[in-house]
Amino acid sequence: MITLNDVAKKANVSKMTVSRVINHPDQVRPELRELILDVMAQLNYQPNAAARALVGRRTRVIKLTIFEDMDTTEPYYMMLLAGISNELNQHQYALQIATRNSFQNGECDGYILTGIRQTDYAWVSRLTQPVVFFGSNRQGYDYVDTDNYQAVQESTKYAVETGYTHLVFIGIAVAEPFELDRERGFREYVTTHRISAQIIRLENHSHTATAYVKAHWRNFPRNTAFVCASDRLAIGVETAIISEGGQVPTEYGVIGFDGVLLNQIATKRLTTMQQPLEAMGRAAARLLLANINHGDTPRRDQEKVIINSRLSVAESTR
């Protein structure tokens, strides 16, 4: 059986350094930490998680708690889960997925929370474990997010630069920070540049967007671009345009937001603002583990990790 001493010898470091990589990775220089992790992988060294948990009074379990309906977001979470689990595996932590109805089952060392709404903050404030949000919040909790304001500004700018003269923002009907920032990005751009525009808020379902656009088809003149707050809404808009005889992208443009699978299955592959979800998941895991390792250190200012999205141009715009 490979021991901690074997790892230390091969890596030419002390046993204490190897132990610190396992139990307090934030205290080890990144390049040295990577060297030791590589040696552990080469030797197939498996730290005794049960013993470490007992000594540190830790469960070695992180809970990803999802508070929104999975039926409207399931492709979105695939890459997020991959990023979180890949990062946790490097630090010998297990990932447990919980929902609104199961988050209190079993113990854990910390939470990554996503899909939180205003009504959920009361129970969050009662948690004693470290917490990191996936998505911005204005209650002071650490979080990882993309710059939603910047992303929609860039989408809107692209629509204008490709020649569309009337813009429609199709937003998600929730008064949450991510959505408010997306709508603000659109509103400020069209106001500053004096562009003809509309703002519409719908439930995040493709069939809802399809029904709305078909019912109000006469309100959308040719040379309109729809800037959507999700790929799901964008697919619904594109479906309506095509069913009403509109031509995509020559007469109408459609831009989505997310870039996870759904943009690839649209009739015309969606131009979309693609979120780097795997990288964002890794960042959320690293931030939470750092908070766990800080233990009882006095509370610092809110930490925000912002990772920009990028526009992926496809067939639904010029």
Rank of each mutant, 00 (worst) to 15 (best):
V55L: 14
V28K: 08
I97Q: 01
M16P: 01
M78H: 10
R126D: 13
T224P: 09
P298H: 04
L277I: 09
P249I: 05
R33T: 12
A266T: 06
A98F: 01
L287Q: 05
Q198T: 12
Q42C: 11
T99G: 12
I306F: 03
I22P: 04
M78P: 01
A8T: 03
T250L: 11
S14P: 09
I170A: 11
S206Q: 02
S316N: 05
I255F: 07
Y93P: 04
E87Y: 02
N105L: 14
A159C: 14
P130L: 06
Y76L: 15
V18N: 06
I235H: 00
W217F: 15
F257T: 10
N86M: 04
N12W: 00
K214F: 01
A240Y: 00
I242S: 00
F133N: 03
A159P: 08
P75H: 08
H91W: 05
A197C: 14
G56N: 14
A122V: 14
V144K: 00
L180H: 08
L54H: 12
I22W: 04
N86S: 09
A11T: 05
N12L: 06
G163T: 04
G106R: 01
A82Y: 12
R60W: 04
G106V: 04
V248H: 01
R187V: 12
E87A: 06
N12M: 08
F134I: 13
G236N: 03
Y121S: 05
R100W: 03
V13N: 06
Y111N: 03
D6I: 09
N148S: 05
T267K: 14
L180P: 01
R138H: 13
N48G: 11
A173I: 10
N44R: 14
G140D: 01
H205G: 01
G259D: 07
E238F: 02
E161R: 12
Q274G: 05
T65L: 00
T317A: 12
R194D: 13
Q104D: 10
N148R: 02
L262F: 10
P276C: 07
V190M: 08
R60N: 13
L270E: 09
T317N: 09
I62D: 02
R138F: 10
T191V: 11
I170S: 12
I292F: 01
L287R: 01
I307S: 08
R126C: 08
E107N: 14
M79V: 03
L35M: 15
N105T: 10
R29W: 04
F220W: 04
D147Q: 04
F220S: 06
V13G: 05
G245S: 03
H193I: 12
P75E: 09
V160H: 12
A279G: 10
T250G: 06
